[in-house]
Amino acid sequence: MRRAFSEALIQLGRSDPRVIFLTGDLGYQVFDAFREEFPTRYLNVGVAEAQLVNCAAGLALEGWRPLIYSIASFLTGRAFEQIRLALGYHRLPVVVVGAGGGYSYAQSGVTHHAQEDLALMSLIPGLTVTCPGGPDEISALLPQLVRQDGPSYLRIGRFGEPPVPSSAPITVGRGRRVRSGERVAFLTTGSVVIPVTRAADGLAAEGRAVTVCHFHTLRPFDEALLAEVAAHAETLIVVEDHGLRGGLRDTVTRWLVTAPPHLAPNRLRMIGVGPGDTVILGNPTPDEVMRRCGITAEALTETGRSAWTARPG
């Protein structure tokens, strides 16, 4: 995803002379090509997240389209008020890019765990929150975010993730159908869509074709697609690499209890899969964190299978 981001950035640099990239002293070698091509539009402000955001706000007030880059946990946490006021309150077109979202930096320790980034960014009125599942979604979403008139957040993961296996168009604010089936629907955000799709394919091979819907945009949330899925499902299994509160599980829960009954019937059951409300100590690898939360193709297959067999109460 990081590679896709730096390549999309270069394309944007070429097509839009207003684009300017600011980093909080991160992204070693990742942006060398951009920097070489656009030396004055590459700006390292140093390890200073408040300045990163405020400086971008000043640039946006002057008509530029800044993208700001740091580690997700640092940028969204430490500079929360700057994002809220300088970008949100002022409604400025700045793309906030958080690298290493969720537990992709799990082994770097708790300081680098970004399990609140989506929640924090979703709290700010008017801020678009995106969490792409793969490099293809980064490439497609980034130009759309830069063209928007307001602020946005883009969470990116690591290197080497595969593309999202869906032919649905990639549009900000719209979810994507990845697999179609019945009874059980997996809902995902971020790169967990890959193990989920693997699990869905395994279930289909057993004769249990389930639905997979992927939401790369958490805000504004595609409630129409969720309603469409809910109409043909008995169980929703919501999977995310984010803390318990303020992410996809919360979004779906809120919809379930507030949507009119003809859209969210009482028979619908929801199962949440993801990190709990906890600080993860002990230096686990990202894969180990995912394994502990039940986000592996095997565990998800089992979750899907038992949901399929369980009859709604």
């Binding site: 400086c55 000043g58 008509g63 006021l85």
Partner: peptide, 21 residues
């Protein structure tokens, strides 16, 4: 040129404006 109320914003925003100008 900007809204204010919470402190510590004007100088940072000013540096960004200056860079952009």
């Amino acid at each position: 040129e900007m809204s204010s109320g919470s402190l510590g914003y004007g100088l940072g925003i000013g540096t960004g404006m200056m860079y952009g100008m």
